[in-house]
Structure formats: structure tokens, C-alpha cells
Design a protein around this nucleic acid. Structure first.
Length: 585
RNA sequence: GGGGGCGUGGUCUAGCUUGGUCUACGACGCUGGAUUGUCACUCCAGAGAUCGCCGGUUCAAAUCCGGUCGUCCCCGCCA
């Protein structure tokens, strides 16, 4: 028997016709003389009816969940009273005439109905092949495919070509920890799996590829989170001779516009708003602000200048600022809820948290220290009214403290509306200072500085801005890009500032520096975390729900049990020795 | 590297605070039977658990303590 139809595609138009469907038993309701079976395939579910008087169909009584069958029968209309409005195929049913059991299934560890909330994620992953049958996972994987396909088509139309870059490549000891692969032919030497195809795509530009993209697998050996996996997929792209960052920005806006319109039926604005890094920090306390809600940071330094309150005057005297946000509607917060906010502020690095609660009357620890007029001025700056709570922090660089309070409150107060706020963040500092006091690239060392800042690279490196752009959606960083350095001399200056001497430069990046000397065109590009994008489009809270076979937070695969020990022979072949466990200390 | 939550039949869970009544609750699932319009079918009967693992305290441990493993969340980390 050959399949003629998919379950959920059978409609009233097919009534009277013979159909053969194949799939899994979702559920069967055996009434004795009459049996109903919900049959599921990749398209969905339809009801199959088995009459009791046909002995050739007697096997229906033995069917269990997830058994695999093929059924031939006649499509029939259901009587009006029997129509199930909750089912896509609820107006029809298949009257079975022939049943073949293709395969029996052991009782599954969980039901494939529902979204999986009724079992643990570990069990879902161990039996992923069963878990994937549920509608939610089928939908997510289909969405993932649609996104991939649409991206490929989009960039193809824009003149890009997809080129694969090596997975066995060279460790560039900067950034995340590499996954290493030992070389058999060169004992003691290792390949690294790419953290991104960064250098290869730049080499492709130098190689005369005008527009490159790749749906690239990337690997980073760092601790995992609900939005991080050790291997993940990024949309990597690069163009030669760009019309500045503007060209790349508008390409991505067009791409997202199409994705959201065609896949989610959502119309995005043609242009996404843009904030400079400094503006983002000043207004939202974050370089990836969530614009689904307001609660902007306000500087009230000028209002409290002469108030005489020690904490304020001391802060202002040492160059700090007095900043605050208005937690709208949080005026009802109890002492312990405010304590919670205070704890969060201390954890985020503030010396303390001051508050003004506006209710029937105004209560605040500040009342003793500042005049009623100043208090009223502050309240009006925040546009606060009864029921609001103003949170104030004093110090230097306190914006991120308020940023973290801002997101904490938004989450608590459910201010995160069901909307899509894309945002570009540009003009990041090219460098930042590590704890050890060294300079490090805030993006990556191939990012070009703003043209006019190049003169102060050595004199005031922290003031140099990068020709870069991050894309943020609802407070989540989706990706980042930049116009790259295409001159060897400038690239070497950057490396030198990062503390690399000539020898290290040659060893790590010699091949690349050389390539820059052979006619490297100006170029720039972008890298976008696709798993994260798809997670958000699917409204999932974990990246694992949009990846077919993800790893646990400890990097294990409950399905295959990877990673596992290898044999002595395998290690010998690679000239590797296992360190004795006892030597760990 | 650090902090926190969780671990009890196939699955999800109650019990743990205050050890004994636990011969471990319930639901779903499973097995057998009945059942001709169900769609969370219904009804009857039944099976199924070394309470993650190791050790300690105690007359007595699912329960208290220590360790360990697994898992999830967060900080660090993720150029």
C-alpha cells in the first residue's frame, strides 16, 4: 500500500474518496463494537473509525500508543453532532477498510500530546526521537527550516553566494575557549573547531568573492545557559566595497522584514531605531536595552546639587552622578520587595538604593535630608504620580545598576509586552579594559576604528569608537557586525595595543596579515545567532527547544551519552596520554 | 570557578519543616475485562517503587547530617 494522503490535509472535498494514510497511533478509544483511532503523521491528526463487524480489522483492538500503521479507507463526513470543532480535520473521518501494522512501539516514556510540560527536559532529551513527534517540536523545526530557506533565498537574490569554511581549523587563542581536535599525523598538534568563520570570510573578500554568506556551525567551549549551546548556528555574512555600515544594516533590516512578514505575518518597521552605545547606557543602563517598556534613566544631579545630603554631595564632588528610574505602579511595593531591589542594586555594584514611594502621601528615606520642594522637583522630573516608586542610585558608572533594576521590575510587573522591538546599537568603544588592566577588543580585533579616531589609538585608546553595530531584539543581543580593518599596518597597530608582539602576531595571524598585503578590499559584515532568533520567533524560552538534538547545561547529550571515554588504542594513535585522575589536585 | 532549585512506580507528583502511623498519596500511563459515536470515552479489576547513589547519626531514615552523581536556573565566562 502506498500513502495517498497526509492525515491533516484530508478535508470535506475528499469525502467519498479512498485514502491511504500512514502514521502513529496517538490514542485509541475502543468502544468494543466500534473503535476510534487518532492517527498522527507530520501534518497532524485525523480520526479513523474501525467498525466492529469486520474481522479483518480485529487487530485494531491490539493497537497501542505510537504503534506505526497504515490504514486504507473511505473519507466520510461526520454527522453534525459528531463534528469536533477543536480539530482541523474535525468534520471528516476515515472509515477504515484495511489496517496494516508496520511496527509496534514500546510504551513511550511520555505522551506526545501537549508541549512536554508534563515531563522533565532530561527525559525529553533522552527520548528525543519521541519528543520530536509532538506538535510543538515539529512546528519549531519547521520554523527553523523556513527561516534557513528564506535566508538562503534572500541572500541569493541579493547576489551573495554561500561558501563553506573549514571546521578543522586553527586555534586563535583569544575570546572563548576552543574545542580542540588532535592531529594524528602531527602528534602533539591540534586543530580547533571555529568559534566563527571570521578570518575565513575576510580571506574570501580578499579572494575576490564580492558577497559571501554561510549558515555556519560555530563552537565555543564555555559554560552553557538556556540561550547558549556549545555548538550553534550563525548567519555569517560579509561584503566587499560596502557603502559603509549603512549597506549592511539595511540588508539585515530587509531580511528581517521579509522573515517576519512571510513567516510570522508581522510587519516590522522598515528601519529599526538606532542608539549609540553611550546613549543606550545613559538612557537604559544596558548595551542591549529592551525597548518594550520605558522606565528610562534620568539624571537628577542638578536637582540635588545643593541639598546638603552627604551621599549626594559627596558623589557629585567626586564626579559621580545621581540617577534614577520611575518604577511605574510599584508604589505598593512592601518593605521586603524594596529590600529585594536593594539587594539587587548592591549585587550590581551600587553603594545603596534610595527610593521615593508615592502613595496617599510620600514616603522616602530622603524626606529627612532634602526639602519638600526638591522632592517635588524630582517627582516631576520622573513624571511620577500616585502609585509610583522612584529608585535612586548615586555614584560613578551606576547606569548598569539601574539597568538591571529596570529589567527586574519589568519582568516582575509583566511589562514585557507581546511586541517586537528591534534596535541597532552603534559606536561601541573599540577597546575595554580587562580586570588585569589590559586592553581587549570589545567586539573583535578585526573591527575598524572610526576614521577620525585613528589618530588617538595609542594616546587615548579607550576613547576610540568602533565602526560596529549590534542588533538587539527585546533586550536580547542577536548579533553584531562591523566594518573591518583592511590594511596590514592598522591591523598590526591594533594587535600591538592588545599586547601582541611581532612574534605572536606572526605565529597566530601571520597568514592573515600577509593576506591583507595582497590587495585586500574594504569589507564589512555581520554575524547573527540564528538559534536565538528562531527561539524568539517560536516564543520559546530555551534555545534547546529549537535545536533537534541539543546538549544539557553540562554539555552532555542524554540521548547518545556523548561525550564518552575512548580506548587506549585511540589515544595511542594520537600520541595522547590520559592524565591520572589522582593528579587533579 | 561560585550561588540556588530539584531528584520518590514508565511519567509527573504528595509525604521531608516536627524521624516511628509509609505495608509510601494521587493523577496520567500500562495490563486484563466490559463497552456501537468517541474525541481527556466511560465502567470494573489489576500489576508496577532497592524513595538518584555512597556513607553517617539513631532503637528506628524517603524524612536529619556529610559526600557524590545527574538535571535546571543565575553570576563569572561567552573576542
Amino acid at each position: 500500500m502506498q500513502r495517498t494522503d497526509y492525515c491533516a490535509q484530508i478535508t470535506k472535498q475528499d469525502i467519498g474518496r479512498t485514502a491511504t494514510v500512514m502514521g502513529w497511533i496517538q490514542r485509541s478509544r475502543d468502544l468494543g463494537g466500534l473503535t476510534f483511532v487518532d492517527l498522527r503523521d507530520s501534518s497532524g491528526i485525523m480520526q479513523v473509525v474501525f467498525p466492529g463487524d469486520d474481522s479483518s480489522l480485529a487487530a485494531v483492538h491490539t493497537l497501542g500508543r505510537e504503534d506505526v500503521v497504515t490504514v486504507t479507507g473511505t473519507v466520510a463526513a461526520r454527522d453534525t453532532v459528531n463534528i469536533n470543532p477543536d480539530m482541523i480535520t474535525g468534520e471528516v473521518e476515515l472509515r477504515a477498510e484495511k489496517l496494516v501494522i508496520l511496527n509496534r512501539a514500546r510504551t513511550p516514556p511520555f505522551l506526545t500530546e501537549g508541549t512536554g510540560e508534563d515531563t522533565t527536559e532530561e527525559t525529553r532529551l533522552r527520548f528525543r526521537y519521541v519528543d520530536l513527534r509532538r506538535e510543538r517540536m515539529q512546528r519549531n523545526l519547521r520554523l527553523r527550516h523556513q527561516v534557513f530557506k528564506m535566508i538562503r533565498d534572500f541572500f541569493d537574490k541579493q547576489g551573495f553566494i554561500e561558501i563553506e569554511t573549514p571546521l578543522l581549523t586553527k586555534s586563535t587563542p583569544e575570546g572563548a575557549r576552543d574545542f580542540l581536535v588532535p592531529s594524528r599525523v602531527e602528534p602533539g598538534k591540534f586543530y580547533a573547531l571555529p568559534q566563527s568563520p571570521q578570518l575565513f570570510k575576510q580571506l574570501l573578500m580578499i579572494g575576490g568573492i564580492d558577497r559571501y554568506f554561510q549558515l555556519a556551525k560555530c563552537f565555543r567551549d564555555e559554560d552553557l545557559r538556556s540561550d547558549r549551546q556549545p555548538e550553534f548556528t550563525q548567519l555569517d555574512l560579509e561584503i566587499a566595497f560596502p557603502r559603509g555600515k549603512e549597506e549592511i544594516i539595511s540588508l539585515l533590516e530587509a531580511m528581517f522584514g521579509q522573515l517576519f512578514r512571510c513567516i510570522l505575518d508581522i510587519q516590522l518597521p522598515q528601519r529599526f531605531p538606532c542608539l549609540s552605545y553611550h546613549e543606550a547606557i545613559a538612557r537604559y543602563g544596558s548595551d542591549k536595552p529592551d525597548l518594550r517598556f520605558g522606565m528610562e534613566i534620568k539624571d537628577i544631579s542638578h536637582l540635588v546639587q545643593g541639598c546638603g545630603y552627604r551621599i549626594f554631595t559627596d558623589t557629585l564632588a567626586t564626579g559621580g552622578k545621581v540617577l534614577g528610574i520611575n518604577a511605574c505602579g510599584c508604589g505598593r511595593y512592601s518593605r521586603s520587595q524594596i529590600d529585594q531591589l536593594q539587594k539587587q542594586s548592591l549585587a550590581a555594584g551600587a553603594g545603596g538604593l534610595l527610593w521615593i514611594k508615592i502613595g496617599e502621601e510620600i514616603s522616602s528615606p530622603l524626606i529627612k535630608f532634602i526639602t519638600t520642594e526638591s522632592l517635588q522637583e524630582i517627582i516631576s522630573v520622573f513624571d511620577a504620580s500616585s502609585g509610583d516608586l522612584i529608585l535612586i542610585v548615586a555614584g560613578e558608572g551606576m547606569e548598569p545598576v539601574l539597568g538591571s533594576l529596570r529589567s527586574m521590575i519589568a519582568r516582575q510587573e509583566k511589562m514585557e509586552s507581546d511586541s517586537w522591538h528591534f534596535l541597532w546599537v552603534t559606536d561601541f568603544p573599540l577597546f575595554e579594559r580587562t580586570e588585569a588592566g589590559e586592553l581587549t577588543s570589545s567586539h573583535h580585533p578585526f573591527t575598524s576604528p572610526n576614521q577620525q579616531d585613528i589618530v588617538m589609538l595609542e594616546s587615548r585608546p579607550l576613547a576610540v569608537l568602533a565602526n560596529s553595530y549590534d542588533l538587539v531584539l527585546n533586550g536580547v543581543e542577536l548579533g553584531s557586525g562591523s566594518i573591518r580593518i583592511h590594511s596590514r599596518a592598522l591591523q598590526e597597530r591594533i594587535f600591538a595595543l592588545l599586547g601582541l608582539d611581532k612574534e605572536e602576531m606572526e605565529e597566530r595571524f601571520g597568514f592573515f596579515l600577509r593576506a591583507l598585503e595582497y590587495g585586500a578590499p574594504p569589507h564589512g559584515g555581520f554575524a547573527l545567532g540564528l538559534d536565538r532568533c528562531i527561539m524568539m520567533m517560536a516564543k520559546e524560552s530555551s534555545i534547546r527547544d529549537v535545536i533537534a538534538f541539543p546538549k544539557t547545561t553540562t554539555g552532555l547529550c542524554p540521548l547518545t551519552n556523548a561525550p564518552i571515554s575512548v580506548t587506549k588504542e585511540q589515544l595511542d594513535e594520537l600520541k595522547l596520554q590520559q592524565q591520572n585522575e589522582k593528579h587533579k589536585e
